[in-house]
């Protein structure tokens, strides 16, 4: 298979020293394995996720995404934009669609882009999430071929969350019961949790800082349901989900008297381990709650 190239939008949280820098590391490992070349959009900016609306109105927020798309058009014409962060993917794709539907907004956006010497010309770039690329451009069979160390004996809850799932989601999957993570888990040799009720429940990530109690109540249910389903680990495609579900477990335990210690990993980490890469390349050292079973497999 020839090298596949994409225009890569890493997003703020993937930056070095940021909260999902481990995500980027494992994604890079994964890309090596699958012969994917990610061409980072030069000088990309923040998408404002879905929380910037207090300060930023519709047009300024559209301008943010438009700048990234325009940069991609300019530098990586013809390549699909790929984001690893759910919020980055969603904000960018939504902006592209909104601008496509509304000529007035498009005109105003381009006027703003003039200030940075850019113009959104065609707005035809496909904007995709990394999991879409894996599933659609490779497929489970192909992904399975690279497995060197099957994750045998592991039971993993596929926590899809919100923004990789709604409103766009992965083609062919339903909003309420998407199965792609489960299929991926199976592909890697582990066992998925059937009927994982909280698979697409919101973790309240957007309000994790401003309404921590409410958000943590949601996280508690998500982890609890995973334990109920017999899971020893949660896998997720979204950095907000990963961080939110992983890092507050001590606080949740303090509040609810629970004894959670559930590792929460990225699919890319899972895949890197299964593909035979070491703990560091798989960014297992990025786990605050250590994924011991994966460490063992990686060490084998």
């Amino acid at each position: 298979m020839a090298t596949k190239e994409y225009s890569f939008y890493p997003g703020c949280s993937s930056q070095k020293g940021a909260s999902s820098s481990n995500y980027l590391i494992s994604v890079e490992t994964l890309c090596e394995e699958l012969d994917i070349k990610l061409n980072t959009i030069p000088d990309w900016n923040c998408c404002s996720a879905s929380i910037g609306y207090s300060g930023g109105g519709e047009l300024p927020r559209l301008a943010l995404s438009a700048r990234n798309i325009a940069l991609s058009e300019q530098h990586h014409g013809g390549q699909d934009i790929v984001a690893t962060c759910a919020a980055c993917w969603l904000a960018t794709r939504e902006a592209a669609e909104r601008l496509d539907e509304n000529a007035d907004l498009m005109a105003e956006t381009n006027e703003a882009l003039k200030e940075v010497g850019l113009k959104l010309e065609k707005n035809e770039t496909k904007i995709r999430h990394m999991t879409e690329v894996l599933i659609e451009d490779f497929g489970y069979d192909e992904l399975g071929k690279h497995v060197k160390k099957p994750l045998e004996g592991m039971k993993i809850a596929g926590y899809v969350g919100c923004q990789t799932n709604r409103p766009f989601g992965i083609a062919g999957e339903s909003f309420e019961n998407p199965k792609y993570l489960d299929k991926l888990v199976e592909t890697l040799g582990a066992e998925p949790v059937e009927k994982y009720d909280k698979k697409v429940s919101c973790c309240g990530g957007a309000l994790a800082f401003s309404e921590p109690d409410k958000s943590q109540a949601l996280v508690k249910d998500i982890i609890e349901a995973a334990y109920d389903g017999g899971a020893e680990m949660i896998v997720t495609p979204c950095p907000v989900c990963q961080m939110n579900v992983e890092v507050y477990q001590d606080q949740i335990n303090a509040t609810y008297g629970t004894k959670f210690k559930m590792p929460v990993v990225y699919y890319s980490t899972l895949m890197s381990v299964a593909y035979g890469r070491n703990a560091k390349e798989s960014a297992l050292d990025g786990q605050i709650i250590k994924a011991k079973k994966l460490e063992e497999i990686a060490a084998k």
Binding site: K16, A18, S20, D43, N45, G57, P60, E111, A112, E115
Partner: peptide
């Protein structure tokens, strides 16, 4: 996953003025 040194500066776009002008315009 958190870099205390970020307090000193951290990441950013190169053309910060242009960027801010763009937002201002919008």
């Amino acid at each position: 996953r958190l870099n205390p040194l970020e307090i000193l500066g951290g990441h950013g776009v190169k053309d910060q003025t242009g960027f801010q002008n763009m937002i201002k315009k919008a």
